[in-house]
Design a protein around this nucleic acid. Structure first.
Lengths: 225, 225
DNA sequence: TCAAAAGTGTTAGATTTACACCCATGA
DNA sequence: TCATGGGTGTAAATCTAACACTTTTGA
């Protein structure tokens, strides 16, 4: 709040999105090859500039909607990245966000339109600028969040089997879990409701489908996985 | 990365600092009355604009140094705050940081020079713009951090008694702790070293002074309080 | 009939919590 | 001598982690 500030010290602010998806037992993120300079051809997160008439959060929502066609995506801020030369061309401060989407809700033709790929979180190539840092921090925050709040369901279909849920948590934590202990804990959480439906795609016998009941969760918000 | 962006969509980026201190058994932060429009006279965090030749982190460091005269302050980013009208005058995106300082290292005349006050974290008045939100988020992050990493020592003198340390954790968590259980856990952490020194200011009998040994911590970084 | 995933309980060990008294000292 | 904060151990309760077999069904 001191000193002289003129137009020259204004900067661009952008948002960059780490979009998590869970498919075939793997946690993945969406990245693409940059089609603009600087950094053309490098792997990169998808982003966009913040407009003067929208909040930074809204910019992230807009960019996510552009990219996925989905509304009401679960999204949290990762943080601001503000090294002076993080963008080789101009001074740009970027605010990173991570988002959780259900891969099945996502129209794959959009993915191809934007030239994006789902890449296994453990096999992320070197990315443009400081995007690897963003991914690392997003992953850390997401792991923390998913362990203490019921947001993992955002990565699954609204009906899911306990095996799917367990595999999700295994992928996020990078460690195997004991099936019996895992199911014991799920059973204690009444907001993870068993339905009458059976999923036969994963096994001959078939597995019960469960769903997350938000109303019950709100009455007794106690989550730990 | 799409659409047209001209100079008009550049914005100012500022930093705002939540400076935590621990004194007389209370967790406090430094706030002051704004001496500029808009918001003149309102309680506010201390901040400053990011210059074109410094990173956002460096801007926070600079502002903290201006304010405290201290180098190497422990500081972590809280996040970016980017509502369109968060600043009544101009479009300003602000990145909040929290810092931990030892009140005893801080020159109180600087506090008076800047017209700042130490305010109990549980008695924060309404602050300018979105500063209360920043404080809430900073507090949450700080609580999380201090429980899992040995940074609480930054709020204490380099030599401290176990009672002081316990009171710090009680203030941060807002809950009383059992003295024997607390000391048991401290004893298991070899990097919290007992010295031969005795502090007689807090009691007639005197209490042993302890110190944090970073080297020992690095060999076996296992912290939990 | 058999391969493959679903589903189910118990026990030992580790961790956490609750709890009360003596000590040393200066006023 | 007494008021004040410093310092210490044990036992119950809870939580966590390890572990293996039966069921169902489509191929």
């Amino acid at each position: 709040m001191t000193g002289f500030y003129g137009e020259h010290s204004k900067v661009w602010v952008s948002v960059d999105c780490i979009i998590f998806g869970f498919d075939e037992g793997k946690l993945r993120i969406l990245i693409g090859k940059r089609n603009m300079d600087p950094g053309r051809g490098e792997w990169s997160l998808y982003g966009g500039f913040v407009r003067s008439d929208e909040s930074v959060d809204n910019a992230a929502n807009r960019v996510l909607y552009e990219l996925t066609g989905l509304r009401n995506i679960y999204m949290r801020q990762v943080g601001a990245f503000g090294k002076v030369d993080r963008d080789p061309g101009e001074r740009v401060v970027s605010v990173a966000y991570y988002a959780l989407i259900n891969v099945k809700d996502y129209d794959d033709s959009l993915r191809r339109t934007y030239g994006l790929e789902w890449v296994n979180i453990d096999e992320i190539p070197p990315l443009y600028s400081d995007h690897n840092e963003m991914v690392q921090k997003a992953r850390r925050l997401m792991r923390q969040k998913i362990a203490t709040e019921p947001v993992g369901f955002r990565l699954l279909p609204s009906l899911f089997t306990l095996t799917q849920l367990q595999h999700l948590y295994e992928a996020v934590n990078g460690a195997e879990l004991d099936k019996r202990n895992f199911r014991k804990r799920v059973k204690e959480m009444d907001f993870i409701e068993k339905t009458e439906l059976i999923d036969k795609t994963g096994s001959k016998r078939g597995a019960s489908l469960y769903r997350f009941n938000k109303r019950i969760y709100n009455e007794d918000p106690n989550f730990k996985l």
